[in-house]
Design a protein around this nucleic acid. Structure first.
Lengths: 116, 116
DNA sequence: TTGACATATCAACTTTTGTTGGTGCATTTT
DNA sequence: AAAATGCACCAACAAAAGTTGATATGTCAA
């Protein structure tokens, strides 16, 4: 009866941890910061971040696996960009952690990109 | 000249990684989910999460160190609650990762709790 | 077609995180 | 005052994440 954590909460829990794990590393955040201005190929990121190729590749994979990147290949270049949708999901998961309103009715399940 | 990552970006980067690291573990997310409904003492969390005391204590420390928890002691109990302010900061950092607008002027530095 | 480049992936290793069981110290209960 | 409770913290260990250098593959350039 006092099922303390509801089913959606349990579902969200794993998602939240997964997604935020991808955002929990400085190099990866730096990658995203660079991609804010638009698509970049790996070699550009490599120069801009001054990171070893395999290291960068590793971090790109983490971001990719988390669904945070769009990927495109052209010739011998690999281009990455931010997957805005997924970033919005992260946003929603975060908003869902906000404390319930004290007086007033229960918090509604919040949905995509409420701000900006 | 092409200082690819601006100073605020570099500052944000560390903050983002630190804060999101705290959110990158299922147990910790579960703690926050429980605290959405308000303050809890450790022993309550312990039961509700079915977690060993020292394990829970460890995760609470991580959340505390990230500034995400308010802490209060009463008698032999230790009460925790969500630090909403800090959660809002996390929110802002996340919103700051959104890609710049394509046409139109540059993204403004976004501030606290724009939604909900 | 040979050589240089871009990039993914792998294995070995290092570092960081997380778990477990224990100890110590308040505080409360009996 | 003795026993029990709540909780922080520590040390030893386990597991996960990150780094590095090497190798493999595809593509472009000479």
């Amino acid at each position: 009866m006092p099922l303390v954590l509801t089913r959606p909460a349990v579902r969200h829990r794993a998602q939240t941890a997964l997604l935020f794990h991808a955002l929990s590393d400085e190099t990866r955040v730096a990658v995203l910061q660079l991609l804010r201005d638009g698509e970049r190929c790996v070699c550009e990121l490599q120069v801009e971040l001054d990171a070893a190729q395999s290291r960068l590749s590793f971090h790109l994979k983490v971001l990719r696996d988390a669904g945070l990147l769009l990927h495109r290949k052209e010739g011998r270049w690999s281009y990455y960009a931010i997957a805005t949708e997924r970033l919005a999901e992260a946003h929603d998961l975060l908003v869902n952690l906000r404390p319930a309103v004290i007086a007033g009715r229960a918090r509604l399940p919040l949905v995509a990109s409420c701000c900006g």
